[in-house]
Design a protein around this nucleic acid. Structure first.
Lengths: 343, 343
DNA sequence: GTTAGCACTCTCGCCAGGAGAGTGCCAAGC
DNA sequence: GCTTGGCACTCTCCTGGCGAGAGTGCTAAC
């Protein structure tokens, strides 16, 4: 239904609006975008686009503004794919190197990069502990009545927690317990481990070997209340420069959402499922707290295992072409980095 | 030089301004604050206060607003000390319990509490790794070419970092290395440890025992670039409700400062030195990034050792009485909690 | 020393008017 | 039949003027 002219006009409206944040009039399109058509003709085309829901008017005598639907078709069909400059690619490469060994350090770096290279907010979801495969456990005695439990996953994630114990445990006991637990758990996801531990404990309630029950109990305690995944947010303050957030209340709503990260986790987990780069526009983000925003996210991997996602969050009026290039490049380099590290 | 009347009027101005955020006129003071004096008399008193720099006028025909100097004398001499309600104290007690074993968990909890119980931003400085006394080190082999180094300090802080190694190391080697390093370092601060490690390495450059040099090198690498202390910020979005931050640019400047935490570290370290509760008002905070704000901070301890500080950050027009009570109570309960934990 | 009165100043909200931008529609032209 | 110039209309935004309101400093009287 959209003929070539419709497409051209819509593309021009979206591009101009992304650049200026001002409603786009027929005159601008006719002049700047190389259509050899008069404003009047453009107007009829724009009227069509409006009727079909691709653009809207803020008020009767204003220019047109793209709707979510308009952005969607722009992203899917009309947008030019652009590349980063070699300098930018190199900058990303330099900061995302296998020498940074901890995943969380790498993600922090990626967050800084994405927010520095774009005026948008960088977001990243760290590998989820509960989905990682368990590799080993270590216990370290701390004073008389506390034990430091260290859990290592094959994704390179390290999780530690101090856990109170009823009676003093020697380091040798602890090491035996650690070996026992490690054997029991190796190769399972932590979610499975948690269930298994609870089951084991129920089964061996009257276990003669007091040490084993203690080991199990320590494991359970260390995993308690640790479902929450880690989200990194960087460059949030930059959103204040976007005209759509000139209103302080919108700004506040946004920051509340950033502070209470659980909502972002829901969003990013959603994105994780696809296993591929995703763009969600405006209402496609099904979170009340986040209105008028779009995200571009891409998963990152170690070898073939998807660990998490990185991306940018900006106003729906964001530069999708650049955002896409940025997120894609970054995610790929991150994947490369993590994969080389594991080799 | 300030007589009783001057003091009363200044107190009234500060209190009213804190409540309403509007310049305070002579009429309000005369009526609401129980002076049996006419507005005209109050005006002469206010003219004195202005001459001495305790209050200022936004423009010729507006009421008075306290200056930093005015707030200072209010806090030092004029303010009523108030207490929290028993319910509030209990709420804090319930959340700050010795059962939360990790210092960072406790600090997060404290941050949530302080920002929930006040309309201000909660800030906390975690125990500084470099100032903590070193307790032990653990090495864990990760794959062939990486080792997880875990440093434990007597403040209950756990620091871990994965470090690349040139050649594979067996777990037994690692354990011997860990024992060697632990013996070498126990009881020193990590800052000392870092210097010592570098010195040892230089001295034993041609050391026959390859293992020891490797142990030292691992230790050095784990401490590299880790001077940065951890700052917790909570409730930052609440600042959007303060009328002084209605301007989006001020809001942005504030959030940039929050995001780049190094500045906050400087501020909080400054506060740490005093070893006692401190209130800094407006310009007394010597950071360009932070303008028009005051902080109330108190150190928290384990036994007699100061670990860090907690506090609130708000507009200079903040409720100092309540802020003081809140920070004092919280810091004391946190100290109690940490001390009991160590017992 | 205190107070009432008064002239003065400054802000703020309201309203009217004009400029500017953009539209939809229509009739004429290619 | 598509395209276009012309035109009337609408809506926003800026500006200036005006009055209300709040608060001040000064002065003279108590």
């Amino acid at each position: 239904m959209l003929n070539v002219r419709h497409q051209g006009v819509l593309r021009a409206i979206v591009q101009d609006y992304i650049r200026t944040a001002e409603p786009v009039g027929s005159r601008i399109i006719s002049r700047k975008y190389g259509f050899s058509l008069s404003p009047a003709t453009i107007r009829t085309t724009m009227a069509d686009l409006e009727e079909w829901g691709y653009v809207a008017q803020p008020h009767t005598s204003a220019g047109r503004v793209p709707t979510d639907k308009g952005y969607r078709i722009y992203v899917d069909a009309l947008m030019d794919r652009i590349s980063l400059t070699p300098a930018e690619v190199e900058q990303i490469e330099q900061h995302v190197t296998p020498s940074k060994t901890d995943v969380d350090e790498l993600l922090k770096e990626v967050g800084k990069l994405l927010s520095a290279l774009s005026p948008y907010v960088a977001i990243a979801l760290a590998p989820r502990l509960t989905e990682s495969r368990f590799q080993r456990v270590e216990f370290v005695a701390l004073g008389r009545d506390r034990v430091l439990v260290i859990l290592l996953s094959d994704t390179g994630l390290v999780h530690h927690k101090t856990v109170p114990v009823d009676e003093p445990l020697g380091q040798e006991d602890l090491e035996r317990m650690a070996r026992y637990l490690t054997d029991l758990m190796r190769g399972r996801t932590l979610a499975e481990v948690r269930d298994l531990l609870v089951a084991e404990m129920a089964a061996e309630k009257a276990l003669y070997d007091r040490m084993l029950t203690q080991a199990l109990s320590l494991g359970v305690k260390a995993l308690e209340g640790e479902t929450e995944a880690d989200v990194y947010v960087a460059g949030a303050a930059q959103m204040a420069d976007q005209p759509e957030f000139a209103d302080i209340r919108k700004m506040k709503a946004l920051f509340v959402a950033f502070e209470e990260k659980s909502k972002l986790v829901i969003l990013l987990n959603e994105c994780l499922r696809g296993g591929d780069l995703r763009i969600l526009i405006g209402q496609e983000i099904a979170l009340e707290e986040i209105q008028g925003l779009s995200v571009i996210v891409s998963p990152y991997r170690r070898r073939d295992q998807v660990l998490g996602v990185v991306g940018v969050l900006g106003p729906t009026r964001m530069d999708y072409g650049r955002g896409l290039a940025l997120v894609e490049t970054t995610a790929n380099l991150l994947t490369r980095s993590l994969t080389e590290q594991a080799a």
